[in-house]
């Protein structure tokens, strides 16, 4: 396999075929990224961009702790979201692939409907549900609770609820596909060899589902570091995350160099974390089951 990849670099036909993609990537990804980087070295004066090369923006970023506080909070929320999504999505995906085969099409359609519904609509729906005068408190009062028993709106709990709810379907489908692709005869072979149900799950199903779990983790993480609707609408804007900070910097402060620099910082940190986990994942894979 490795040899084939090495050969592809010397194959003029393959290189020619890849050329359009390379041009597209260069034009639409690399060039804007370089422009964004160049922008970080400019300055803003009276809300106007002035093209004077300066390290002012980067000095600002590395000397003001609040940018890192918000970034740290963003990463914490994103990683928590990944863990919660996996904990909820895996049993659902497992049940769909193994226990609810008769109903799986119906369940998949229902999840797809939720998936395709606009995130703004779903998020504002949660506001109405969690509101002091909303459905949650109405039900709580009906069941004997007094006052505002459900009082999580405009807190990080509500933000997390919205994030998990909006991103969960990505995890369910990704993990479901990997579990569904597992060869059943391998599990039956484990039973034949005397493995208990738990042992067969732990030593056969889970390791084979690992690529799906990993893919779902990366997907959820990258989407979660970029959320801005949930912290703003459900979190009440009091615990801003990086995407909102970047929006505010670009739009409200009209400080494009700073906004561009914060964007790059978020990208670099997110990619670094993905690579770090990728490394850990690779090591674990070589060491055996999870």
């Amino acid at each position: 396999m490795s040899g084939e990849i090495d050969r592809s670099w010397r194959d003029p036909e393959l290189l020619a075929k890849a050329l359009p993609s390379v041009i597209l990537q260069t034009g639409f990804f690399l060039a804007p990224l370089l422009m964004t980087m160049a922008l970080t070295f400019q300055r803003t004066k009276n809300f106007q961009l002035t093209w004077t090369w300066s390290l002012e923006t980067w000095t600002d970023i590395f000397t003001k702790p609040h940018y890192w506080t918000i970034l740290g909070h963003t990463l914490f929320m994103a990683i928590t979201c990944v863990v919660l999504c996996l904990l909820i999505a895996f049993p659902v995906a497992y049940a769909l692939a193994t226990r609810l085969r008769a109903y799986q099409n119906h369940v998949k359609v229902l999840i797809t409907f939720a998936f395709l519904t606009d995130a703004t609509l779903k998020t504002f729906g949660w506001v109405l549900f969690l509101d002091k005068n909303g459905a949650a408190n109405y039900i709580a009062r009906l069941t004997g609770f007094e006052g505002d028993a459900v009082n999580i709106l405009f807190t990080d709990w509500a933000t997390m609820l919205g994030m998990v709810y909006n991103l969960l379907s990505f995890a369910i489908f990704t993990i479901y596909l990997s579990i569904d692709a597992i060869d059943r005869s391998l599990i039956l072979a484990a039973y034949d060899a005397g493995a208990s149900k738990f042992r067969a799950f732990w030593e056969v199903t889970l390791p084979l589902a690992r690529p799906g779990i990993w893919a779902a983790s990366v997907l959820i993480f990258l989407l979660a570091v970029g959320v801005f609707l949930e912290p703003k609408v459900l979190g009440g804007g009091k615990s801003p995350m990086s995407a909102e900070l970047i929006r505010q910097t670009f739009e409200t402060r009209v400080n494009w160099p700073l906004g561009a620099a914060l964007t790059l910082v978020l990208m670099v940190v997110a990619v670094f974390i993905v690579l770090l986990f990728n490394r850990i994942y690779s090591l674990k894979r070589h060491m055996g089951p999870i």
Binding site: H66, T69, S239
Partner: peptide, 16 residues
């Protein structure tokens, strides 16, 4: 206003 907006961002982050 830019200094005030920067202070706003700092205090909002500190209020978390």
């Amino acid at each position: 206003i830019d200094e005030m907006l920067a202070i706003w961002q700092e205090e909002l982050a500190a209020a978390q």
